[in-house]
Amino acid sequence: MSNLQDIVVREMKVNPTIESKIETRNIIHFIKNYVQSHSFIKSLTLGISGGQDSTLAGKLCQMAVDELKEEGNECQFIAVKLPYGEQKDASEVEDALAYIQPDEIITVNIKPAVDQSIQSLKEAGVNLTDFQKGNEKARERMKVQYAIASNNQGIVIGTDHSAENITGFFTKYGDGAADIAPLFGLNKRQGKQLLMYLEAPKHLYEKVPTADLEDDKPQLPDEEALGVSYEDIDDYLEGRSVSSESKEIIEKHYIKNAHKRELAYTRYTWPKN
């Protein structure tokens, strides 16, 4: 491994292999422990997109909440459907919900809020690109989740995992914002491995990953947007060799998007003071 790859592997906490039963229990324990350590928490909120990451996080949250309730703790899991108008993969969202079996389902169409925000900005002379509009959707979705969590004495669950974190493939203060991120430390193939172990419907973990935020490029595959495959990203995170081209792309993403992995600096924490 190169020096940078060695640093990244340590930072992203990905193990070369995982044992599904142990990893599942470790994640459930983390979720339960966090809830039990904060007396105000009565709910967990998560947006369900129908993709691998939210399906896995949602299933693990519901499993953790079921155990908490059996142990006498008051807690519920709230799954949120957050379409922008009509969602093209709405059937897969329903399949994910049927698999997760959440305590409660709330649907909020973000289109009116997003469109009004974009129009207000336009009237102020700020014309967003299609890509920037996509970020507005991601941030509106997170805003809604925090509103629901606040209304239910709860926290918001993030779906960020290490293959996403390394590339910065999330919207800052959008899907990158959350109270806990139980999937961190897993790469993409390991998330799939856990869904297989948890007997999820095959089409949910085989689904082509897409953020689906841009109107001009609906259902754009993540790998096309990133310019590198998850297979190569996963290999890199496991400390394996990848092609020099893939290595360069991955490390460029890592360096360029470092700011997304950091909290806001103050004059006391900025290292160049």
Rank of each mutant, 00 (worst) to 15 (best):
D95S: 11
L56S: 02
E164M: 05
R141P: 03
V114I: 05
R25T: 09
Y254E: 07
T55Q: 06
N257E: 13
C75M: 08
N257Y: 13
L128F: 05
M196Y: 08
G51P: 00
D179H: 14
I106C: 00
P83G: 06
A147E: 11
I110H: 04
Q119S: 06
E199G: 02
Y268G: 00
G51T: 01
A211L: 09
T55F: 05
Q76N: 09
A225V: 05
N15W: 01
S91F: 09
T107F: 01
N109Q: 03
T45W: 05
D232C: 03
T45F: 06
S43Y: 11
E245R: 15
Q101E: 13
S91P: 00
Q52M: 12
E104P: 00
V114L: 02
L60H: 09
Q132A: 07
D216P: 01
Q219I: 03
F170P: 05
L68R: 02
K247G: 03
N3V: 11
M196K: 15
N15H: 12
I157R: 00
A200D: 03
R267Y: 14
G174V: 12
D216C: 10
T17N: 14
P209S: 07
L44F: 02
G168Q: 06
S229I: 03
E92C: 03
P83I: 08
L121W: 00
K217N: 12
I22F: 06
I233E: 04
K207Q: 13
M142F: 00
S150R: 14
Y99T: 05
N3G: 06
A79P: 08
N73V: 15
A200F: 04
F184Y: 11
R240Y: 10
P218I: 04
F170I: 10
E23F: 03
D53N: 06
I180P: 05
T17W: 09
N33V: 04
L46G: 02
S49G: 04
S246H: 04
D103H: 11
D160A: 14
T159M: 06
I100W: 05
K21M: 08
K192I: 13
S43I: 04
G134F: 02
L97C: 04
I180Q: 11
D66Q: 14
V208G: 10
Y236R: 04
A57D: 04
D6C: 10
L220F: 05
K69V: 14
K256I: 12
K247T: 08
E251R: 10
A258I: 12
E74F: 07
D130Y: 03
E86N: 11
F131E: 05
H259R: 11
